[in-house]
Simulated assay, not measured.
Amino acid sequence: MKLFLCGDVMTGRGIDQVLPHPSRPQLFESWVKSAVEYVALAERSAGPIGRGQDFGYPWGDALAVLAQQRPDARIVNLETAVTTSEDAQPGKGIHYRMHPGNVPCLARAAIDCCVLANNHVLDWGHAGLAQTLASLHGAGLRTAGAGGNAQEAAAPAVIALPQGRVLVFAFADESSGVPRGWAAGRTHGGVNLLESLSLHTADGICRAVAAQRKPGDVVVVSLHWGGNWGFEIPPEHSAFARRLLDGGGADIVHGHSSHHVKGIEVHGGKPILYGCGDFLNDYEGIGGYGEFRGELSLMYFPELDAATGKLQRLQAVPMRTRRLRLERAPAEGAAWLRTTLDREGRALGTRVVAADDGGALALAW
């Protein structure tokens, strides 16, 4: 069973402005008051972009990679609300939204599941969350990690395949910037927020997964955790992820929130992606943190034995964002990603080598 996983997919704000149905561009940021400014920043950095682009425009070369790799299921962390709500959360510095009319952008990449347990899905209030859920479900897209109440937010997305099911359980941690008040409750909507990153919490997830897991299921636990910058993996992240794998609560841990790639571990034959990095965003042209190469990203393609959940192979295709569009990373960027993951994986028992497939990287463990 081959999966496609990636880091944060943010198709709102500036990217939303170049699609066929741009939202009202008003923002409430300290320095930028219009989403159009993010388009201008990208154009000053790399050249003209234009407006009214095709729904497939932001995916760029990633569409050809997906066609070549042919994953059985495609799972992304969608880090934007999909709404026309004007209820911008007060006191929050950044608000992301994509117009519901631009949902075909996600369908264009044939996304199977949008993880919503993150720190931007409620940027435009509970009305914005409700419209996000309705827009995605109306387009046939599964969601995990947010819902109209706690039960819905905790329910896994179920992707049925000929060789078995993929269950996607999604959680957010306060360390990623999710306010405690965003947690879904018995009678109100919100995100599936972790109580803590304790082993006790991990054991509770394992029990919840066991209650729904059937023989042949592959379980993805998607976690929005940690800060935006820094390669260090907190000890509580490692202990939490390993406990999920050891306790049967996950076959793969899909971590995100960091704006750059982080090291990969294989524990008990099963992978932990501690931080997949940003995959698609409108940060182009913004200065700072250049040493982390946030414009570079990876398309992760883990292949798992459907009977055991064990990792058979993991390939990753280097990409970069340019002109608000994904393209294959240049040789220099691909080399940086390989060197960085190899360095960060050393303490985790993994190495990154060139794959047989042109330009792809492969994990060795």
Rank of each mutant, 00 (worst) to 15 (best):
G359H: 02
V121K: 04
L348Q: 10
V166L: 11
P318Y: 09
A355M: 03
V76G: 07
H267T: 10
D87P: 03
E291F: 11
R320A: 04
G185Q: 13
L78A: 10
L304G: 04
Q312T: 12
A73W: 05
I205K: 05
H267Y: 15
A153Y: 03
N228C: 09
T11M: 14
L136T: 09
A42V: 06
S175A: 00
G145R: 11
A154Y: 02
A347H: 12
H99W: 04
L348Y: 08
A241K: 09
D356K: 00
R51A: 15
T350D: 04
T132G: 05
T321F: 01
A172R: 03
G147K: 09
G255K: 04
R322W: 05
E291H: 13
R180V: 04
S297Q: 05
N281G: 08
L5H: 03
R320S: 07
L314G: 12
V82R: 01
H126E: 10
R351F: 09
W229S: 07
A157L: 12
A107D: 13
P71Y: 07
G7S: 05
L314N: 06
V209E: 09
D246L: 14
P58K: 01
P330K: 02
L194T: 13
S198L: 06
L66V: 01
D217W: 00
L136E: 02
G91V: 00
V353G: 07
I49Q: 09
G290E: 04
E29Y: 03
N119D: 13
G91C: 00
I264A: 04
G52Y: 02
L296K: 04
L78T: 14
A316C: 11
P302T: 08
R343E: 14
R108D: 06
Y289F: 14
L63P: 10
V220R: 07
